[in-house]
Design a protein around this nucleic acid. Structure first.
Lengths: 300, 300
DNA sequence: TATTTGTTCATTATCATAAAAAACATTTGA
DNA sequence: TCAAATGTTTTTTATGATAATGAACAAATA
């Protein structure tokens, strides 16, 4: 069959809502005007008008259209149960991969994913095509898709790439002018880190959020669509791995807090070299953690 | 309708080719074995065998299959005219965008592109979905796609990102061990640069190739799938823009040669700081050139 | 002459479905 | 008997056809 008429249904209800604001017998705006109101083409509007005429809601002859009676809830048209949000797909997909430890080189079934995520097959294909640009999935020779990550090589390369991006960000922060919002953000981050440090014994698992907050602040100075796109994926992957890897979590987090603070210290002192060195130390730790979390998976 | 049977047709011909190596009356291998030979599933193989039986090429009963006569060219099955190569699409698309100066914010018609590039609509959608990860295209609110690049902002961000990647590469080259192949490559690049320099008056347009060669050599030390993926797109874009922007080409190229040589000098001296500084100078020139070529387009 | 509607044409999103793959069950013969 | 082959069923994928939508143009109105 052909495409769904969801657009028409939504437009129809929207036009009804608009008509509710009109008094009975009021003239109805032009088709072009209505199409602007509903954000659809005139074709759809004419379909709406036809139905309204059939229901006796309006009179319509040439360019004379007027409301015959106030629309009622029964006049509305049912919307097909909307499938799950498409924009959310990335998060849910990575969540699935990491939470269930989907191993590298797993064949991905579009049909199955489509069912599980409640998303049309072609949307999934589009999504996977996007991920293949990040080297996370690829097409298989006999058709279908395959999950490539998370091998050791993948983790190493991802970490290295992240380092390149973050060191660049740190360098830019060090050169940010005094009034730049990043300084306020970092001051807040520092305070939150110190607060958590005093309550470390009990709240150490809260660190995950702080980590995100810290890296977000640092990277906020970099206004670059390419970097931003990658950061999204990178931070998701690191974030999830930290979440699920529970070995020595408290010690790990305590160390990370100190590393973060060292970076902030150097930045606030406008010491670019020291900041770079501190960031390098921190990124090396991160890399080690990510790799060891993979090793656990391999063994388990 | 449904998917094409190209796979079957190709497999069939391939099996025929295999059978040509067999003597008449020879037994034919198992279905599983044949499926390995042709690289398809048993379903396809059985379809092939059925046809071969119908043509009287083989006898087939249960697991007894044997060749009745040598296959002839007339036994082969016609292949549908294969549409243009899919892997080549990226190059051709960028070529089209840059060669015809498709302006930013142009709506892209899948139908039209599909005709022009001789590629199924589905494949184009997948391709564009991939590009949207690079911020080159995006989906439009009312459906369809739109070309976003090449605005000034896009060029700036692309250049900046390229700088981040290349400076990282240069730093890694500076630390490469003596026996690393990059040194031989750079020596060759240096020699080629010097050769061109002497013939600059007439052959200055040959520089484009050298530029590619130079940046390829530098980036070859970076083994990283993410960076590699981006470099592909970046180098294509820079490459094409240089090709089409003819203003002051000779002077531009002469200056670039000296900049390249300065970088190589510093690298061979293992002076990382000097190499970084030289690379930064060169990248700044590149950025300026890219931006000015955009400005010309805006005016023309 | 600027809007509005009527009409036609082009494009997109979506689905049904044949082709292909994969999984499972049965048979065969050493 | 059991591994390998075939027979059968189920699942998945790729892809053309097509209704829904958008867009362009022509005619009409006021």
């Amino acid at each position: 069959m052909a495409r769904s008429d969801t657009r028409y249904r939504e437009a129809y209800n929207q036009i009804l809502t608009y008509c509710e604001t009109l008094p009975v017998a009021a003239p109805i705006p032009s088709e072009t005007r209505l199409s602007e109101i509903a954000g659809v083409s005139r074709t759809v509007i004419r379909r709406c008008l036809t139905r309204m005429q059939e229901l006796g809601l309006i009179s319509w002859q040439g360019r004379d259209k007027s409301l015959l009676r106030a629309p009622q809830s029964g006049d509305r048209i049912a919307l097909p149960r909307s499938s799950a949000d498409k924009g959310d797909l990335e998060q849910r997909f990575l969540d699935w991969v990491l939470r269930f430890d989907v191993p590298a080189n797993t064949p991905l079934s579009i049909a199955e994913l489509s069912r599980n995520f409640d998303v049309p097959q072609h949307d999934l294909r589009e999504f996977l095509a996007g991920l293949s640009r990040f080297g996370l999935v690829s097409r298989r020779p006999k058709g279908g898709w395959m999950l490539l990550g998370f091998t050791k090589d993948f983790a190493i390369e991802l970490s290295d790439f992240r380092s390149v991006l973050e060191l660049n960000a740190v360098a830019q922060v060090a050169e940010a002018p005094v009034g730049h919002p990043v300084w306020a953000a970092l001051a807040k981050v520092r305070a939150d880190h110190l607060t958590l440090k005093t309550a470390m014994e009990t709240d150490y698992h809260e660190f995950s959020k702080l980590d995100e907050q810290f890296h977000l602040a640092i990277n906020s100075v970099v206004k670059n669509r390419f970097i931003a796109e990658f950061q999204k994926v990178i931070s998701l992957i690191f974030h999830y791995h930290y979440m699920w890897d529970k070995t020595a979590e408290k010690e790990r987090n305590a160390a990370a807090i100190d590393e973060h603070l060292a970076i902030i210290d150097a930045l606030e002192a406008r010491d670019a070299d020291a900041a770079r060195a501190a960031a390098q130390r921190h990124l090396r730790t991160s890399k080690t953690t990510l790799l060891s979390s993979l090793r656990h998976h391999d063994l388990g």
